[in-house]
Design a protein around this nucleic acid. Structure first.
Lengths: 145, 145
DNA sequence: TTATATTAGTTGACGTATCAATTATTGAGC
DNA sequence: GCTCAATAATTGATACGTCAACTAATATAA
């Protein structure tokens, strides 16, 4: 297995991305008290009055199955309200409950604290560069093959 | 919820990292035919004659439980050989089988193709910058709190 | 040497993402 | 109006990572 030095570094990038994710998941949750995905769902709900699961799924770009399960659990916890569209029974509309609307504020404060910690030594310039690079990577993965 | 513009961007960085991971997992596996973690384990085994599970676990930095399960499955597939240390029965030593040694070469070629695709529009300079930034983020996550 | 601590590995419970298959409802073409 | 296609949501199977509890083997110290 003969690999050039520059390839080794490329590999490090991909491995680093992977490890960052693995380390982030538990830290994020223990810090904020909620998972990243679930908070993202709540955040989207926060921005609107009501939205269909399908539309929400498109926004967060997660598998339908996962969306269904998250929303059911959030409903069980009383953070979310779900109802069928009377006009078209295929659609389920979702909205934040009062309690959900209150709780999400605290979650997001903690998320902000977490993000500040993770990026604390990055200049404004660097953050811009990084975001641009990550966006390109994401696009490359999407169009791959 | 009043958030400054720069914070919004920081949030995008973290969300992007998360989404990159989610999209990478299935693409990587369908492209290479093996999961990233499992290939990393095999790669470490490729570099040595034999190694204890414990030492291997420290190298890949994954939970013990996951390591045990991966190695058992790789053993079932005939890619890996495991044996107890006669001197100290607590240790299990792992090594690549001949078949494993052959197969890993193909896997790694596919991985290289995948990585090239993901980073194809990045200059040498950019890759260095990116790796540096990711390394800092990883460190920040580790020392957080 | 015998009780206690440490260490490696395994197993179980849980969370959550994916894909594939299924159900229920609505829409379109004849 | 009736059959067939499309769509939203759900459920099942599978994969994989975490933590916690457990087993077995060895080291330590009284």
């Amino acid at each position: 297995m003969l690999l050039s030095n520059s390839y080794i570094d490329d590999e490090k990038i991909i491995n680093r991305l992977y490890e960052i994710h693995r380390r982030t998941v538990p830290k994020f949750e223990s810090c904020t008290g909620i998972s990243q995905t679930r908070l993202e769902l709540l955040h989207e709900l926060y921005e609107v009055e009501e939205i269909s699961q399908r539309a929400l799924q498109k926004k967060v770009n997660i598998d339908h199955a996962a969306v269904t399960r998250h929303l059911k659990q959030l409903e069980d916890k009383g953070m979310v309200i779900r109802r069928k569209d009377p006009k078209d029974q295929r659609f389920t509309y979702v909205s934040l409950s009062e309690e959900g609307r209150l709780k999400i504020i605290h979650y997001r404060e903690e998320k902000e604290r977490f993000i500040s910690g993770v990026l604390h030594d990055f200049s404004e310039e660097e953050r811009k560069t990084l975001l641009g690079m990550l966006t390109r990577i994401q696009r490359n993965i999407e169009i791959f093959e």
